[in-house]
Amino acid sequence: MQKYSYSIITVGEQTVNVVFPNQINIKENLYIQHLNQLILARNDPGILASIPGYHTLTISFDIRIYDYNKIFKLIKNILEKKSFQIQSFHKRILEIPVCYDETLGPDIQDVAAFGKLSVKELIKIHTQVEYFVYMIGFLPGFAYMGTVPSQIAMPRLDRPRTKIPAGSVGIAGAQTGMYPVESPGGWRLIGQTPLKLYDAKHPKIRYQSGDFIRFKAITINEFKAIQDRDSSGEYQIKISEVGE
């Protein structure tokens, strides 16, 4: 497997960034996810948090337990071990139902026009791709996913909306994502998922960075039915696992 060059830089007295080549690349990001998993698997009380970015892993540690030399060494040891590789490329794909009705995705006509497509064709293209979750940020469960086919990769709105309903699915250039809670935002909205992606009472996020997500088009009637089942805890996200 390919090895990626990296550097470790200090961000503050309790944090380092492991920085990989500056690009959006699934293989490189999987490499970062793998490093993250290995660090988390240590269950090390000295590691406080680690946040994967597109091409970085931000690691915070307890200075009562770790100093810089120790943390540098720890990361270096993991990355430079011969056995460090993404063992048998394993893929977890989650199916997220999305209703592309115009009442739920107010920008769908614009995005279709951008790609010189009918709405039907746009939906077909958006649901064909397995989107990779590079990172989660902005809000709990806000997944930064790519890569949107260039045909429908419309840039974000010039003027962000002040209010976007929870569950909205949008496009911002090559990225696609879902708004887990109502918030302001500038992504082009093409649909909405009936799933409650964030629930303050059960605040568990059902996907993580490194997963793949495929959208499944549903009708407005199915939308309501799934919403009911999901809110009573009966809806299970379809997950398929592919190993090589």
Partner: peptide, 10 residues
């Protein structure tokens, strides 16, 4: 810039 993790005091 590509988004990355933030730290208290950034």
């Amino acid at each position: 810039m590509l988004s990355e993790g933030t730290v208290l005091g950034n």
